[in-house]
Amino acid sequence: MNGIHDLGGMEGFGPIVREENEPVFHAEWEGRIMGMTLATLAQGFYNIDEIRQETERMDPVEYLTSDYYTHWLHTAEELMIQKGIITRAELEAKRAELAQAEASQS
């Protein structure tokens, strides 16, 4: 499908920003979602084409304004919900539980 992911030849994105001695992951969660996606891929939760298609279906503004591993996170969440592995309600309940636990610790 065409869409915002099809960036080849577009103009106006500005200079290429490089980082010296860039780490493999910039935050712990990036590694966790990468590892989780590969581990669940290996278990057959989904295949690589489904992952690519789900990323391409992201909201175009969200796609351009979020980082690479945020795309991975979006895709893992949405595919697992679509496939009935988890529900959105379960995910939201777990987020609320963790947020509350974090808040009470600080």
Binding site: W29, R32, T40, M80, I86, K94, R95, A99
Partner: peptide
């Protein structure tokens, strides 16, 4: 960060359901 919380929630949920081994990650 919002992402850190979302990732933690997803992993925690999968572990609760017995669908993911954190050691594999």
């Amino acid at each position: 960060s919002d992402e850190a919380l979302r990732v933690k929630a997803l992993e925690s949920l999968l572990v609760d359901k017995g669908l993911l081994d954190p050691a594999a990650v």
